[in-house]
Design a protein around this nucleic acid. Sequence first.
DNA 1: GTGGTTAAGTCAGTCATGTTGACATATATG
DNA 2: CATATATGTCAACATGACTGACTTAACCAC
Lengths: 168, 168
Amino acid sequence: MSDIKTGINPLFLREEELRQGIELLFFAYRDFTAEPDAILGEYGFGRAHHRVIYFVGRHPGITVSDLLDILRITKQSLSRVLGQLVTEKFITQRPGLRDRRQRLLELTEKGVELERLLTERQRARIARTYREAGAEAVEGFRKVMLGLVDEADRGRFPTRAAGPRRGG
Amino acid sequence: MSDIKTGINPLFLREEELRQGIELLFFAYRDFTAEPDAILGEYGFGRAHHRVIYFVGRHPGITVSDLLDILRITKQSLSRVLGQLVTEKFITQRPGLRDRRQRLLELTEKGVELERLLTERQRARIARTYREAGAEAVEGFRKVMLGLVDEADRGRFPTRAAGPRRGG
DNA sequence: GTGGTTAAGTCAGTCATGTTGACATATATG
DNA sequence: CATATATGTCAACATGACTGACTTAACCAC
């Protein structure tokens, strides 16, 4: 009631601010995934394939268990997409050295190409946005996004605090 | 090659930065949706129901067309979830005044309750994160997220600096 | 080395949510 | 009146998630 003059209730402002946060996540994610989704369609793949290709590319030699931990889906769900990707030679499996029960996953040449094709759009979108928003905004973006991630997984994002910020 | 001393290639740094951006979106969205999803399960609903409830709650009296524009799904897809929500009395429909072909959507009391229950978790997560990250980081977050959204939809996020954009 | 645990895979069935395509109805508009 | 628009519906299908039960191979502890 202290805002009668401006007509803006600070509680409403907070509510509005939080809702905008929710919606930013919805719209950004919607648009962020739309481009790769369209490309995936041409291959008869879906978003699940992209995720698998992405994280195998990101962590060459990753185990199935670790991939399941990231994706938070069941092994039966993963099995289908992974099976396709292996059959169609986008991903190879080889037994682990220390533990031969493991099937270490890696992208083939073909897999690397597809990964690049798919992720390229997303990288470009982020690069453009980062450039337009500026370093300070990017820092804030990272901070908030990291705070939204479950604590257990925040360790996946090492801070590069020590090194040179942007040499090029 | 100017980074031989540190062993850090600036191009690699950039690549790493962009990939972290991609992954922040993945992990944040994954964890942001997990809590409501669990609650929805108890009602026999899914994430699609949440989206409908959310945006109808956000824009009382919204038309089906406008809702479709937001969700970017087909009317057949929407029809199923919307039909359920109307049947189970979470949402009401009434004909438009100017255009009686329209079915203006609104949450019922029951719908408002469920919306609150679902979104409460997400608001809490964002509120906590905003608090921990600080106002400056939040500003950066908003700036970058908005940049990731397709230009066509950026107008949905009025800056509260320049006065009321859409009269509500 | 036997036995329990773990990593991974498989088979089968189900559900939620998206798609296309064709068609129906009511209302608006030129 | 003719056409376009807003909405809804029926049908068929694909994707990606789920549960539950079971198998195989390898690891590990006793």
